[in-house]
Amino acid sequence: MFELLTTWLAGMQGSSSIVLALILGAMIAIDMGGPFNKVAFLFGSAMIAEGNYYIMGPIAVAICIPPVGLGLATFINKRKFHPNEREAGKASFTMGLFGITEGAIPFAAQDPLRVIPSIVVGSMVGSVIAMIANVGDKVAHGGPIVAVLGAVDNVVMFFVAVIAGVIVTAIMVTALKKDVESAPVKNEEVQQNEEIIKQATPNTNLNKLTDITNVDLIETNLKGETRDKVIDELISKFEQNGVLHSKDEFKQAILKREEESSTGLGMNIAIPHGKSNAVKRPAVAFGMKRDGVDWKSLDGTDAKLIFMIAVPEDAAGDAHLKILQMLSRKLMDDEFREQLLKIASKEEAFNLLETIR
């Protein structure tokens, strides 16, 4: 199916660019990082390799609209969302800035009939505007971060497209959703709703990053001179701490994710992550490469601060999202990154990581 969809998209390049933009926008949003999303994303990446940046441009716009749009909706109309959804909205908004569509998943899982149409329409609107305006993206990533780091052609229209799509999503979802306290509901219905939210939103038992890391999972002086050597060092940390069933199987998951697109976010940050049955429990390893290592980052900077996330396959929709939310919020703070770069010991690093929550 993946190959058929890719061939179909490739065959559309000579047809209406508006139709192609509509399809790409819908595919990016409809499963938020799932198979349809990946087909559209990898198709755009392949077009970059062929020198065509004007397919990835609309995709880069569409990628961030679901999480940012839903985050905005929780800010402007709180009556439509439960308290834990409003809290998740803050993290969703931040994840969208980094181009992480998965921040929308908890909302879609809670109310798919209203949320999914809203994010699909918003992403389609943004994608079409970007296509008409010839917005190009030279890297295989999306969200405002690629524009800020200089990878986008026609930056003004990129943001116009994003803002338009976000507004459409926010207005549509708030119009469709009912006030959560608008009418009395039966106790059984309340319990069902609470159970759905509990399953859809990240695990509340994970309150801070240091709940799933320790001093032994920190290395302040990585030796590897290449990305893969650094990956090996951090995976060894997991193995030594009993986090993995299989070191080799987990490495395959990490490298497979890197093949999709680099986890080098720029600003000297890389967040390699793997979801695999080879992982026993969620964990994060942190490493510093003081002179940096090439991670094919969006802004061309070498990675110096490397956070490796390991989660079991059955926790992929829970712990994985929570960890990404915590990291993306904190790592946008320039002062925090500077403090990390100055630490001299594992203990200092651990104390600083305790502030990530």
Rank of each mutant, 00 (worst) to 15 (best):
L9F: 07
A10I: 12
A10F: 10
G14W: 08
S15T: 15
S16F: 05
S17M: 02
A21K: 04
L22C: 13
L24D: 08
M27Q: 14
I30V: 12
M32G: 02
G34H: 09
F36M: 08
V39F: 00
A40Y: 02
I59G: 05
V61P: 12
P67T: 03
K80P: 15
H82V: 08
R86V: 15
M95K: 15
L97A: 12
I100W: 07
I100Q: 06
E102A: 10
I105P: 00
P106R: 06
P106K: 06
A108Q: 06
L113W: 12
V115C: 13
P117N: 01
P117V: 01
I119E: 04
V121T: 04
V128Y: 05
A133T: 14
V135E: 07
G136H: 07
K138W: 06
I163K: 02
A164K: 01
G165N: 14
V168T: 00
T169H: 03
I171T: 10
V173A: 01
T174P: 14
A175N: 10
L176V: 14
K178T: 09
V180W: 08
V180I: 13
E188L: 11
E194V: 10
E195S: 14
I197H: 05
P202M: 08
N203V: 02
N203K: 04
I212N: 00
T213F: 03
L217F: 08
T220C: 11
L222I: 14
E225W: 03
E225Q: 13
V230N: 15
V230C: 15
E233Q: 13
F238L: 05
E239F: 03
N241R: 01
L244H: 02
S246G: 07
D248W: 02
F250Y: 10
Q252S: 08
R257H: 03
E258Q: 04
E260L: 11
E260I: 15
S261A: 00
N268A: 10
A283M: 02
A285I: 11
G287K: 11
R290Q: 14
R290A: 13
D294F: 08
S297M: 05
G300M: 10
K304F: 09
K304T: 13
F307Q: 07
E313A: 15
D314S: 09
G317D: 13
A319T: 01
H320Q: 15
L321W: 06
L321Q: 03
K322R: 15
I323E: 05
I323S: 08
I323Y: 07
M326L: 10
L327A: 11
R329G: 10
R329E: 12
K330H: 07
M332P: 13
D334S: 12
F336E: 09
Q339L: 05
L340E: 10
L352Q: 15
I356P: 06
I356V: 15
R357A: 01
